[in-house]
Design a protein around this nucleic acid. Sequence first.
DNA 1: CGTTATGTTGACCTCCTTCAAAGGCTGTGG
DNA 2: CCACAGCCTTTGAAGGAGGTCAACATAACG
Lengths: 234, 234
Amino acid sequence: MKPNCTDVQWQGRAKCAVCEVRNFVLFSGLSPHDLDTILQPVDNLHVPQHAVMYEQGNEAPSVYTVRSGLIKLKIELPNGGQRIVRLLRPGDVAGLETLVGDRYHHTAIALHEADVCRIPREVVLHLDRTSPAVHQALLQRWQRSIDQADHFITALSTGPAESRMARLLLTLGCANAGVEFVLPGREDMGALLGITTETASRIMAEFRRRGLVHVEKGTYVDCNHAGLTRLASA
Amino acid sequence: MKPNCTDVQWQGRAKCAVCEVRNFVLFSGLSPHDLDTILQPVDNLHVPQHAVMYEQGNEAPSVYTVRSGLIKLKIELPNGGQRIVRLLRPGDVAGLETLVGDRYHHTAIALHEADVCRIPREVVLHLDRTSPAVHQALLQRWQRSIDQADHFITALSTGPAESRMARLLLTLGCANAGVEFVLPGREDMGALLGITTETASRIMAEFRRRGLVHVEKGTYVDCNHAGLTRLASA
DNA sequence: CGTTATGTTGACCTCCTTCAAAGGCTGTGG
DNA sequence: CCACAGCCTTTGAAGGAGGTCAACATAACG
């Protein structure tokens, strides 16, 4: 039996007042006092790579905000497969469906080691009612989810596999400079683009041969932004 | 020059108090008095088939609720093509992005003759702030958009074209009984599924040969629900 | 140092696109 | 009323893109 290193780990009560991405996330409109009193029940969690935050169909007691890392939201397909429908980065919110329903609609898994805050639905509902700023921020997150879903349809599910892969790399933050960014495994790429693992592998290999991407030492990726952009719009 | 029968036509001020789908749409929580006073600026519009309600990138002054008919939301692709990212039926809302931004994110076109109510963004924003019921209804519509987008990714953009087409027909309300429902043109089917018009045509022809659907006199469609369901989960 | 997941590559075949042409439906004008 | 144009749909043939199955390599991990 493996050491249980894929379990979500509790890091303690969140210290929202000093949170470095607070202005970025949901509670930018709250006063320091509100932060201390209202946000008591917020937990600060560390999510190791491949750990499951919550599962599709389960009771949904909490909303999560991403502080660092990368989270994938996937949906199980009737035929046993799976499809990733969203990628969440710092500042994004997961589990908003809890505000209008009682079940999670996706399974949330960390693609890359992440830190998240777990907020009970009641806290969010209360803030939504009492703080116009939080309310507005919520609407914005909701809209952001929609925009991202649209992007998955138009950019990652449309056209030949090669173009989609180029768009995925650009979406992941692929820049000319050797900026480190998370490169998902081939299987996840397949689930993101609606293609098979083998095809994902072939395309990545081809990109490497053509000098469109250089992968060094794991996740350190260097890529040809211009070349990928050309492919993306084909 | 054709008679301009594809322009959106003004039908007069909306009479929300007697609207037959009111309980279905946004304002189910309002008192009759509120309906009369607050909803003054709401217009009742008739949208002929193929008419454009609004266009992607344009200034977004209004939200629309669908009272009857079928609306498609499409996005222009960089390479000149287009992709339909959502289908709106009675009770659905279009243009919610106006509440957090100032541009429409899609082009909205009637797939089938429709009746809609046009509501100025300020009215919706005001009601969102003052009526908890409307506020909750708004959140639900937002979530519904997300669920539909997810459905487009998992059901209409995943797997072989034949399965996707089966899922599309089921999504459109294809039932065993000879229920009348709107059958989009082949080109729209292609834009819905991310396949070419020819492939859409071929698959529909094949479905007809196999007795999975019967099309009589235009839009009157009879289909084999069980058979389509089998294909859909393949 | 074997064992197991993950990535790569090849061969083959199916599915889908592309390009092209023909058929059918509708509206318009003679 | 018919002829014709225009649009949508259907169908064909050919080529390419991607799926499938299988073998192998590489890397992670006990």
